[in-house]
Design a protein around this nucleic acid. Structure first.
Length: 220
DNA sequence: ATAAGGATGACCT
DNA sequence: GGTCATCCTTATA
């Protein structure tokens, strides 16, 4: 069980590196979100690295704009964008100030931790996640946060409320903390859903983890 | 397979 | 100013 009271967020220096390095190091660590009095947590099991202005698949490719400005700022901040008219995607900025780069969170394994004050009748963390996703109580757990849009919805992350927040501050509604978890084998593949720069294996996931996205019927 | 949905950037006038 | 193709997706059939 995660004891989040004692866990401090990963420091800024963790993110002051290339997206590939940060992406690999993020696997197995824990995303903690505080929303509306609830504490929600998930283990990071799948990520993708997006490089800076040299990466045709990255938002930063065509230079700084109001939308992507976070990518060019200080490392360790949330970059949240809205896509396909209905979903949010969560990234964290990497590289030093002035240089763009980020890691996209693609899948989380929901963790059970004590959500609130422990009053009887309070919903469990998983119940909150399911409710946020509009899932039936008996729907498979992998539908909660396996996919970038799904995980943002489950954890209540939106552009309006989270874009630009500092993930390294203990006061932040969104943090990443360390854990005793030791990542086993890490698999690298091309990134999902892009048409450019397909040749680079910049998607990383924990081998064998059931909560990695998109492997229900073998496709992808 | 494909419809749904909305913001964004590129490219015009 | 305006239009349009594109988009790091998901839920449906």
């Amino acid at each position: 069980m995660l004891r989040e009271k004692e866990a401090l967020p990963l420091p800024r220096s963790f993110y002051n590196a290339s997206p590939e390095v940060v992406a690999r190091k993020l696997l197995g660590r824990i995303l903690v979100a505080r929303s509306g009095g609830f504490q929600l947590a998930g283990r990071i099991v799948e990520v993708e690295a997006y490089l800076g202005v040299t990466d045709p698949a990255a938002h930063a490719f065509s230079g700084i704009t109001p939308r992507n400005a976070v990518l060019f700022g200080e490392p360790g901040h949330a970059y949240v964008y809205f896509i396909y008219g209905m979903y949010s995607c969560l990234n964290v900025s990497c590289e030093p100030q002035g240089k763009a780069g980020c890691v996209l969170f693609r899948a989380l394994e929901p963790l059970h931790l004590s959500v609130s004050n422990g009053d009887a009748g309070d919903p469990s963390a998983e119940e909150v996640l399911r409710r946020n996703r509009g899932l039936a109580p008996l729907a498979p757990a992998r539908l909660i946060a396996s996919g970038p849009g799904r995980l943002s919805q489950a954890f209540g992350i939106t552009r309006a409320s989270h874009n630009g927040v500092d993930l390294t501050s203990p006061a932040s509604p969104l943090q990443i903390v360390d854990d005793d978890f030791r990542a086993g084998e890490i698999v690298a593949t091309p990134r999902i859903g892009i048409r450019k720069a397909v040749e680079h294996p910049l998607r990383f996931y924990l081998a064998g983890n059931a909560f990695v996205s998109g492997k229900v019927s073998g496709r992808r």
